[in-house]
Nucleic acid binder design. Sequence first.
DNA 1: TATGTTGTAATTCATATAGTTACAACAAGT
DNA 2: ACTTGTTGTAACTATATGAATTACAACATA
Lengths: 142, 142
Amino acid sequence: MKITSRFTVAVHTLLAIHTFGKDYKTTSEFIASSVNVNPVIIRRTLGSLKEAGIVDVKAGSGGASIIKPLKDITLLDVYKAVDSVEDGLFNFHDNPNPACPVGKNIHAVLDGHLLDAQAAMERKLRETTFADLVRELDGRIG
Amino acid sequence: MKITSRFTVAVHTLLAIHTFGKDYKTTSEFIASSVNVNPVIIRRTLGSLKEAGIVDVKAGSGGASIIKPLKDITLLDVYKAVDSVEDGLFNFHDNPNPACPVGKNIHAVLDGHLLDAQAAMERKLRETTFADLVRELDGRIG
DNA sequence: TATGTTGTAATTCATATAGTTACAACAAGT
DNA sequence: ACTTGTTGTAACTATATGAATTACAACATA
């Protein structure tokens, strides 16, 4: 199992808003044609990003804009905004037998290590900001 | 989306084999009662661990044993053995529009960062060996 | 008021995992 | 050789999750 494409869709969405926001009205329809998904997916993505205080969306008139400094938006912020991450990256089997010495202690032994691994990944995601991504993207667009 | 419970099932399986292997025949049925899943799940798990050279399974007579030194079995080894990890931890949306400057470059900009995050997690998993886990478990069992 | 858009619910579709049943292949004891 | 218990695996079902889609009320602006 893996992390959903909601994450990369959200990153793409933000980059599209930044890149085209000056010249176009970045509606869900517009963004959807770049990401190549259904516009409703973009609306839901924008809803999550809005809840997280990263974008503002104009209901009615349409269009989205980024309201947080690019250098203060990390990949981790976006990841947390759109992917339900509260229950951890790793799935644990449901009911280890508490009558068995191993089953009884497996959580105590393993949970910490799994959290460590997850934390290592999140630390890495926090290192990259959208200021970085925009710089890299602009370098490629030229 | 997340990493499947196959991983924790496999860890549990190995710890059960090590803990009980001296006194019991660790059949799929036996292990399944500790993990609390269907025996077939354990057989499939053991099949993967066997392919990876971590365990030996006696077909017919029954029972599994660990054939690799505990200090040389890391959590990453087990993770890679049972979870299909080739296609990456992150799902990427399928068809970003190549006619759009953002869609055309999104992979080039993002892929490296995603791989970095995944690598950070795997590095952390590699730090823990089954010698460590057994020590921790034995400490709790007393 | 007319137009175009957002926000969201409801439904369908696709995929992946876990659970289950069934059974042939196999190993070892008798 | 026969019996017993187990593995290995295929086939199928059940369940969960995400993505796609349809539909429409709420909304903002000209």
